[in-house]
Amino acid sequence: MKRIDKKTADAYFRTRTILISIYLVIGFSASFGAVFFAEFLAEFTFNGFPLHYYMGAQGAVLTFIILLFVNAIVSDRIDKKYGIDEARNESIGSGKTVDH
């Protein structure tokens, strides 16, 4: 199994931690922000509904789904950037031996 340099591993996990924190802030803002600013958001409409109602009914869920796809795409790019090969990980995870 290929060893990863400690500096590379630290940079990888630092990047992933920052991104996860950003995703959590966006998710928190989408779900609780609609409640905190309901009176202000009531002035705006989206799809024929007041924005605070839409965010409470569907917007927060759609935001989380979009964040899932964004996370998957960005994670793949980060894995490639730091040299983490998906095919190699799958073969190791399935119990197959990997030759260098």
Rank of each mutant, 00 (worst) to 15 (best):
Q58Y: 14
V98E: 14
Y54K: 01
L41Y: 12
E86M: 01
F46C: 02
D85Y: 05
Y12F: 15
T8R: 13
F64V: 02
V98R: 09
S29E: 05
I92Q: 03
H52N: 15
R77H: 08
Y53C: 03
Y23I: 06
Y54H: 06
R88A: 10
A42F: 06
F64Y: 07
S94T: 06
V35I: 13
G27C: 00
R14T: 13
F32A: 01
I18H: 09
F46L: 12
S21C: 01
G59C: 02
F28P: 02
A11N: 13
F46V: 14
Y82N: 06
Y54R: 04
M55E: 08
G48D: 10
A34T: 02
Q58S: 06
S21F: 06
F36V: 01
T15R: 13
V61S: 02
Y53A: 13
G59A: 08
Y12D: 07
N47F: 10
A87R: 04
D10N: 13
E43R: 14
V25Q: 02
E39V: 06
A60M: 05
H52Q: 08
V35M: 03
I18V: 15
F37I: 00
R88V: 05
I78G: 08
A57S: 10
R14L: 12
R77A: 09
Y53K: 14
Y12C: 05
T17C: 04
F46E: 05
S75F: 08
L19T: 00
T97H: 13
F44Y: 15
A30H: 00
G27D: 04
S29P: 01
I22F: 07
T15A: 12
G33E: 04
